[in-house]
Design a protein around this nucleic acid. Sequence first.
DNA 1: ATTCATGATTAGCG
DNA 2: CGCTAATCATGAAT
Length: 468
Amino acid sequence: MDEQARIMQALGGVSLAGHSVQGGMGLQPPHGHDGTDDGRKQDIGDILHQIMTITDQSLDEAQAKKHGLNCHRMKPALFSVLCEIKEKTGLSIRGSQEEDPPDPQLMRLDNMLLAEGVSGPEKGGGSAAAAAAAAASGGASDNSIEHSDYRSKLTQIRQIYHTELEKYEQACNEFTTHVMNLLREQSRTRPISPKEIERMVGIIHRKFSSIQMQLKQSTCEAVMILRSRFLDARRKRRNFSKQATEILNEYFYSHLSNPYPSEEAKEELAKKCSITVSQGVGSTITVSQVSNWFGNKRIRYKKNIGKFQEEANLYAAKTAVTAAHAVAAAVQNSQTNSPTTPNSGFQMKDEEFQLDSAESKNTLLTNMFTGSSGSFNLPNSGDMFLSMQSLNGDSYQGAQVGVNVQSQVDTLRHVISQTAGYSEALGGNTMYSPNGLNANGGWHDAMTPSSVISPTEGPGSVHSDTSN
DNA sequence: ATTCATGATTAGCG
DNA sequence: CGCTAATCATGAAT
């Protein structure tokens, strides 16, 4: 192996040519000495010293020496030797460099960024455009309001991500070009195959892509945080205002046989609730919230009808009040007074028939209405319904009615029983009885909203049973 | 601190 | 897609 030794010698001399051609081994490997710590320290000290003494002048000098070497008459011979060495070491280089498959983690990140709309094709651009697009896509008024904040934040993340990505790409390209130039430059003094350059570029790209992965990762994190915050905010439960609940309950109990508001009805309910809801900022009730409410209400009502009976009675009565007022007018116009009572029953002011909201009214009503527990077994529900006209919702304040409540109610019943024709025309009162709730716990599926809604009103009208 | 009420979310169904 | 049923999670009442 004396050839190898010769080569090594030659290599050493050439490779260090830039620093000290004449001076022999400027940077001696540690094993050139005895290998003791002192020796190594000495070497390191020498190296440091040499580095420290590199000046512009010495660089120029080195450049000149390099040039001289390039023009050296022995250069081609040395070059061929180096090529030979490369040939021999090429295997190990190729062996050590394996083309790694696409990183699954990177793919995951990419997919997620794509799914979140961070890295995908531009959709909307700025937050304003996004909001506009959302608003334009019909019926998304609630969603866009809810999501606008989220969208704008996402857009911010997206912008940052793209600028950073661009920066990295630019830096990567710059660096690659730089290295390639360097290698090309060096290829004049040492053999560098295109493959090697390629490999180098690959290494650089891998390094930069690992930086990119960090960027992607942190972007993903940011998106996740944003998302979780958004979801948290949505999950935060705020009770609806009393008025909103009232409106919803009125609708529910007046459509008890088919408490499935149409889309339009939901929208109108949402609007109505939002108006009523404290007119405050952000206290809007969305259609989906209305849907949630009805979903919850239906299931909870069905699960425990008994528990909701009082409420049902209350709201039915409330609805009746408004309805009965209309009937009252009709009765007044079309009918002579009943033998037992003058029509004062309908003229009666609410204050004359006030019940305490929580206790007496409910017990009274419950007693009156309960036949079989938990179901509204009221053959003439319309009657009873109307008889409760004076239980006007918000103005229960005294419980001073006592026993004559019953008598008044009876009187009213009597009067109203003669107006059966009208009771049929009252939207909602027929729904008071949960006839729609069939034996196996479901509402009639045959029943459509339009079929149970007041004949005088269009299907889905929210105003139908509750307005004046 | 515990319990109840209630709005929101989720899986599964048709 | 809308619904039901179950469940989660929070607000309010006790």
